[in-house]
Design a protein around this nucleic acid. Sequence first.
RNA 1: GGCGGCGUAGCUCAGUCGGUCAGAGCACACGGCUCAUAAUCGUGGGGUCGCGGGUUCGAGUCCCGCCGCCGCUACCA
Length: 502
Amino acid sequence: MPPFYVTTPIYYVNDAPHIGHAYCTVNADAIARWHRLAGDDVFFLTGTDEHGLKVAQAATANGLSPQAWTDELAPRFAGAWADLQIANDDFIRTSEARHHRTVQQFLQRIYDNGYIVSDTYRGWYCVGCEQYYAEDELAGDRTCPVHGRPAEWYEEENYFFRLSAFQDRLVEWFESDPGRILPEQKRNEALSFVKGGLQDISITRTSIDWGVPVPWDPRHVFYVWYDALVNYLTAIGYGQDDDRFARWWPAVHHLIGKEIIRFHCVWWPAMCMAAGIDPPNHVQVHGWLLVGGEKMAKSKLNQIAPGDLTVDFGVDPVRYHLLRDTPLGSDGDFSYEGITARYNADLANNLGNLLARVATVVGTKCGGVGPAPDPASRLAAVAAGVVAEASGAWEAMQPAAALEATWRLIRETNAALESAEPWKHAPGPAVDAVLGSALESLRIVALLASPAMPSTCAEIWRRLGLGGLPEDRRVPDDAAWGGYPGGLAVEKGAPLFPRRQE
RNA sequence: GGCGGCGUAGCUCAGUCGGUCAGAGCACACGGCUCAUAAUCGUGGGGUCGCGGGUUCGAGUCCCGCCGCCGCUACCA
């Protein structure tokens, strides 16, 4: 089985989980589920980023140690993902011992290779913020934009990563495979940044101690980004289990938001090179899920918690909407009108209603026993085309396109019923052929849509009378026309997606 | 300022190498059906493919200019 390693960024634990986080995580989950369905050996990783000044400050403000503080916060993310039926294989926290060990090993290696050097960091520093500011970030008279008091000129001995040494190799990496960073626009953005020249980066801090200690100089801790990125290696046994590491690396797919392109497409591959391992195979960049045209932010009070939506719409409809309405790469704008429209059109009217009408007619014309599909049905060709298109789209990390293709089979099946009108005819082979084919379409839809809506598709599977779960099947083999055996008891059940008013 | 991108039906968007490319879904209108969650099916778009030039037998699809919008231009988790 080919290895398929997919990651989300580790989320900064000081944030509350919101649908922007959920957007990325659900996409990664659906893609992971698709690859499991395709028979790949999948490892899906997410987690939390817990170091850094702001976390330490928040902990202090709450009268807790940073560790105790993050122990309280991390489960909010893990819990949010459990609620959304996210099937991650591991959940990593950067404060874990295993991660500290890997960071130290990895960065020691880079140090030994001569790519981390001691140098002096100079800049305008605000004591209140405990932070450096670039010249143009400061207000008039070089005052801190937050505190309004003058920043001070500081010089600090720091360790620097020699990013500048990797410009040529990074360009080579970018150009060795046009699919390295997708979509192409983001790739070009990152590439032009690299071509514009790279400076060395300060990667350690002495001002705080909530972080991973620098092994060769314990007065320092690593700057959060330099420890955070390494999580992708920690979880697959870097330095601990060489066979395991070799199985998953560099066959990785990093799913990230556009705001962290530089870290993942420039710093990270360079760090890997410096440590003597291959850079990641693929970085998939997604846009932002906006609310009212703006990025969600604590300060704007426009964050929407996933739980607020799932209580109202259900888990699978929320997952479906996130996957279907915002293709990876572009920004999306979340709205209740948007999710409601999608819910009614695609889930209630098309999918839910199709299952209901077919189940009813199977009940009246076939005594509730689902007939076998017609091998010569017009839908067979439609289904084959849909399977091919949806598969291609999932492979290309385009869940929206995959689902759009899948829904074409639903529409065609509704149309086929309309033209055959089995409810008007006496029971018999002709009616059986039409209804069996409709059931077969639903079976294939349940298979293809299961990465997006695992619970719903399992329920459809069950109502069709099929044993096991869609996720136990394999594509493309089990998506071939004719897989529905017939002779199974079909259950109508309550509406899968009750239509929503307004 | 520099580099890059975008501007196609009311809405969200597809449109590979220039020649049925003027499309899909939603919304809307009309008609059919009444098995189904007032769901579904069919039919309907006089859209200057941002504006103006150019190349070509022929351009959303290539070139130039203009207008409008957006992203990046480093040490922020």
